[in-house]
């Protein structure tokens, strides 16, 4: 389609409207392949910082505070903020912008809100693509904010190079800190709202947990106390982000992460294709009575698999 080419041309001239339009197209799955084929060669050099944590922990406020610092240093910032889509109606209220007001008219800050649109794990399906479009559009610092998560939404670890887990004082004891899930994926822990009582205690709990595991000897996640309200600790957080970025690059960990991310993305696409093929095949198999009642689903799957392989062979011939 001609329109896509025009938007791509404008994207590479760092036109904000083109960034916005191409994100919509990819999100709506229109001409996605064509767009990403053009975009990806111009990306991959910028490390992505992801921020996750429970609802109300102060993720958006931290993003805004970090953005302020980064802007003072002259870099531009692309932000993806994800909020949940209603599983019942498909609608969503995307409210992260409310906390990011101070950059609302700064042309070097691009904020995009996304609904999860049925995707689980605390992220939207098109998140990886959207981040790369921002990078190709010239934004040099990339921040990714998840929906407010519970204990097990850990998909951000596959999309962000540096994962910040944001917690608040007074929200749990030492047992919460050693539970599985998001506590395992942090590269940096932030205890936000550290102006409230109990933050040192939480820090101790996390440090104790880190002392117990020690699975990664090369990088021990630092625990940073911040208070956006009192404008405290955000510069230290930024320093730790930079230190982790440098660690990823110097240790070669970045490459490994990149390969893992690639594997996941390829599988995600393959999975989609298989699912599509399966969905179109299934009604036919049922109506042909090729499947006897009472057959084990695992056995049916083997049957279906061989039918799918045959179909594929036919297509290729």
């Amino acid at each position: 389609m001609n329109g896509v080419q025009e938007w791509l041309k404008r994207l590479f001239l760092q036109d904000r409207r083109a960034v916005a339009k191409l994100i919509s197209l990819v999100e709506d799955n229109i001409e996605r392949h064509q767009i990403m084929r053009a975009v990806l060669p111009r990306t991959g050099n910028t490390l992505v910082t992801g921020i996750t944590g429970p609802p109300g922990a102060g993720k958006s406020s931290l993003v805004e505070a970090l953005t302020k610092l980064v802007r003072e240093q002259g870099e531009s910032v692309g932000i993806v903020a994800v909020d949940p889509t209603s599983p019942l109606t498909g609608g969503a209220i995307l409210g992260d912008r409310i906390r990011m007001q101070s950059h609302a008219t700064d042309r070097n800050v691009f904020i995009r809100s996304m609904g999860t649109r049925g995707h689980l794990g605390g992220m939207a399906k098109a998140t990886a693509d959207v981040i790369r479009i921002m990078e190709a559009g010239g934004y040099t610092t990339l921040l990714l904010e998840t929906v407010g998560v519970g204990q097990s939404e850990i998909e951000i670890m596959h999309l962000a190079d540096t994962v910040i887990v944001t917690l608040n004082p007074g929200t749990g004891d030492g047992i919460q800190a050693i539970k599985a899930g998001i506590m395992e994926i942090a590269d940096i822990f932030v205890i936000n709202k550290a102006d409230l009582p109990g933050s040192e205690r939480l820090k101790n709990d996390i440090e104790m947990m880190l002392g117990m595991t020690g699975q990664d000897k090369a990088w021990r996640p630092p625990v940073v106390l911040t208070s956006v309200y009192e404008n405290r600790g955000v510069d230290q957080l930024q320093a730790e982000i930079k230190r982790h970025h440098a660690f990823l690059r110097s240790s070669g960990r970045w490459k490994i992460k990149w390969q893992e991310q690639l594997q996941r993305e390829v599988w995600r696409h393959l999975n989609g294709q298989i699912q599509e093929q399966f969905n179109s095949l299934w009604p036919k198999l049922l109506s042909d009575a090729a499947i006897a009642e009472g057959t084990d689903p695992g056995q049916i799957a083997e049957q279906v698999w061989s039918v799918m392989m045959e179909e594929m062979k036919k297509k290729n011939d």
Binding site: R17, A20, L94, I111, R112
Partner: peptide, 25 residues
């Protein structure tokens, strides 16, 4: 009704609203 609604928050200038509308497409 199944729409994605971006809420701007209070006290917005016309400039802020238009910039948000463009970025959010």
């Amino acid at each position: 009704a199944g729409m994605e609604v971006i809420y701007s928050g209070l006290h917005q200038t016309p400039e802020q609203i238009v910039e948000a509308a463009i970025q959010e497409d």
